[in-house]
């Protein structure tokens, strides 16, 4: 193909794509940058469009969205950023790509510990990091995070990489509760209890317990529900285990937060706020909690039955900002104790 023909083809294809995606600043739209997979959001965005007539354009990624918004600057089409992790909330606020949403609706509905004090962020849902305990071999019905380092579990715990964001947030919560020195000691104890080098994902933790490699796997609440309800192949793994909601000694169960942030240069600011408020509403919370097996952020919405079967969640009240501030220390300690080695 000659260079000029190539150029024409390129321009043509580019303009087709532009036509399908452009028109950012039209009144009836809102642009959502999301760390939650866009395909999983579709039932929700469709319902929003049906309710309000506002079209939702989505782009989802696994990291770097705040860098993208920052580089896009004043022309950024981003209105709302949806994160699925405390760490990314912190990153976005620090990168200076957000603005206060000043929403009375949000302030009223969402509990204070799940909101940014300056109003830049509001939680939308929660998941807890819990233990998948063997039905046959783990006799306890309750457990603390501290206890996971107890030598009685030697060679009996399975977990994924200590640097994975889920574990990073859990370990950061530990640091925030007990300080770095205690956390280091605990991580060494936990490391000594592992049945194998950290690898795989949360589902493998259940699988290894089911296969008898270990007695306790660490995973998020929704993975167990997904295996149980949505995946016949993996159902036996979930069936071989029971979910125990661990607590911090004197605290509650570690929860990680999905959060919504209003972008600093949001071209459709009003629609953005409308989307955030709508997502905190009962209708959306119900869809979101059911589709994703997450805990709703507000009262008055039924928890999905599978999730409810784990027992009553007593969520840790440690403010999100304190966990965010301890992430670096947690990551450093994981390397220091050779957790992943």
């Amino acid at each position: 193909m000659s260079a000029s023909r190539l150029f024409i083809a390129f321009t043509a294809a580019a303009s087709v794509l532009t036509l399908s995606t452009a028109a950012f600043a039209q009144s009836g739209e809102v642009n959502l940058y999301s760390y939650r997979e866009s395909k999983l959001l579709q039932p929700l965005t469709d319902a929003f469009t049906k309710d309000t007539g506002i079209k939702v354009n989505v782009v989802s990624a696994s990291s770097g969205l705040e860098q993208r918004i920052k580089a896009e600057g004043a022309n950024s089409p981003a209105d709302v950023l949806l994160t699925v992790d405390i760490g990314r909330i912190e990153e976005a606020v620090q990168a200076g790509v957000t603005q206060p949403m000043k929403s009375e609706v949000i302030d009223k509905i969402v509990p204070a510990e799940y909101r940014d004090p300056d109003g830049d962020e509001s939680g939308i849902s929660m998941r807890a990091r819990v233990s998948y305990a063997s039905n046959d071999r783990a006799k306890q019905d309750a457990i603390t995070y501290e206890e996971l380092a107890d030598p009685k579990w030697k060679g009996k715990i399975c977990i994924r990489s200590g640097q994975h964001i889920y574990n990073n947030a859990l370990f950061a919560a530990y640091v925030a509760h007990h300080g770095e020195a205690k956390a280091e000691e605990w991580l060494r104890g936990l490391k000594a209890n592992l049945a194998q080098k950290p690898s795989g994902g949360d589902r493998e933790a259940a699988r290894d317990v089911a296969a008898g490699k270990c007695d306790i796997g660490i995973g998020n609440t929704y993975y167990w529900a997904l295996m149980m309800n949505k995946d016949p192949d993996k159902k036996p793994w979930a069936e071989a285990t029971k979910v125990i909601l661990p607590t911090f000694a004197g605290g509650g169960t570690h929860v990680n937060l999905s959060g919504l942030l209003l972008a600093k240069h949001a071209p459709n600011r009003a629609n953005g706020i409308k989307l955030i408020e709508w997502l905190a509403g009962e209708h959306a919370q119900q869809i979101y909690a059911d589709a994703n097996y997450e805990y709703p952020i507000r009262d008055g919405v039924a928890i999905n039955p599978t999730i409810a079967s784990y027992g009553k969640l007593k969520a840790d009240t440690l403010p999100v900002t304190r966990i965010g501030a301890s992430r670096k220390a947690a990551s450093t300690l994981v390397d220091k104790v050779g957790f992943d080695n």
Binding site: T21, N57, V58, V59, S62, Q67
Partner: peptide, 12 residues
């Protein structure tokens, strides 16, 4: 990884 971060809205 580059596709995830650089693709336009609504494009998978």
């Amino acid at each position: 990884p580059a596709t995830l971060l650089l693709r336009p809205l609504n494009v998978e």
